[in-house]
């Protein structure tokens, strides 16, 4: 699938913000399932945003500005060609020991309720890890309702699980926390999804999990959709959780209340002409 992505992130500050600094994880890398044909990250301010790499192997752009800003827009656009690998990830350089993905983070803690849920799926019967991960995928997808109204970016797995509600970020955190509890290295992936129902305009990026299966490697599990990622998925960044894979992490001094607006269009170029809304 040839996928075109146009992604505008606009920050408007109530009063001019000073010392704005951001790290962007908005640039995908090519792997055996996706070829980045074209990619461009632009800022509407006059600052260089040098390209780098973080500990997880993600492409980063980092910038600092000392000029007061009343608004800031980050525009990302590109084309990625994807192929269905049935969720199997290959052709990716792994800079870290897989065991680091067994640690609990603030967003992926467990409580007794979640442990009971995870242990219930693991059950007494010994199954292979891949089957277990698929069972966990099905159970999480079935038990936790997709709902954009009840959680926010800081909601932890425990909080979302207690509500049995959340967005793709929450569902992914729950899945990761349970997998780690069962001794399986698991990590967070942020990316984009072509909606096959034809919706090009989207409210937010997508997220899913990857878990390690010996002999096969990292395998994707899209908990929000209850499937493995396919050619509709563009993998952008990975990390322990939302925070370490976040598309934008920033800090600023002053600026008052921040108003964030996101315009995202993800389209299968074979299906339709790209709709641009500006």
């Amino acid at each position: 699938m040839r996928i075109r992505i146009v992604y505008d992130t606009r920050y408007a500050y109530e009063t001019p913000a000073r010392a704005v600094a951001q790290v962007l994880r908005l640039t995908p890398r090519s792997n055996d399932g996706q070829y980045v044909a074209h990619w461009c990250v632009e800022l509407d301010i006059d600052e260089a945003a040098p390209c780098g790499e973080d500990a997880f192997g993600n492409v980063t752009h980092t910038f600092f500005t000392t000029k007061p800003l009343s608004h800031l827009t980050i525009t990302v656009s590109g084309v990625v060609e994807t192929a269905d690998t049935h969720g199997l990830l290959s052709g990716v350089i792994e800079p870290l020991a897989p065991d680091v993905f067994l640690r609990e983070t603030a967003l992926t803690t467990m409580d007794d309720d979640m442990r009971a849920f995870a242990d219930g799926i693991a059950g007494a019967a010994s199954r292979d890890r891949l089957t277990l991960l698929h069972d966990l995928l099905a159970a999480t997808h079935a038990d936790v309702t997709f709902d954009t109204a009840s959680t926010n970016v800081a909601t932890s797995a425990v909080e979302a699980f207690a509500l049995r509600r959340g967005v793709c970020q929450d569902l992914t955190h729950i899945y990761i926390a349970c997998a780690r509890h069962l001794g399986i290295p698991a990590r967070y992936v942020s990316g984009h999804l072509v909606k096959l129902d034809g919706d090009v305009e989207q409210q937010a990026g997508h997220a899913w999990a990857e878990a390690l299966v010996p002999g096969l490697g990292w395998i994707g599990f899209d908990v929000a959709n209850g499937v493995c990622p396919s050619e509709t998925h563009v993998r952008v960044a990975t990390g322990f959780d939302y925070l370490s894979a976040a598309p934008v992490r920033g800090s600023r001094i002053g600026g008052g209340t921040e108003h964030l607006s996101v315009k995202l269009a993800v389209a299968d170029l074979a299906q339709r002409q790209m709709q641009t809304s500006d």
């Binding site: 790499e53 500990a55 800079p95 020991a97 065991d99 680091v100 067994l102 640690r103």
Partner: peptide, 24 residues
């Protein structure tokens, strides 16, 4: 030292003080 079995991998890699950033 982990490969040689001097210390179990989990004590290092799952340690909250292990900062993956420092691998770079």
């Amino acid at each position: 030292c982990i490969k040689a079995g001097v210390i179990p991998a989990e004590l290092v890699y799952q340690n909250s003080q292990y900062r993956v950033e420092m691998t770079r």
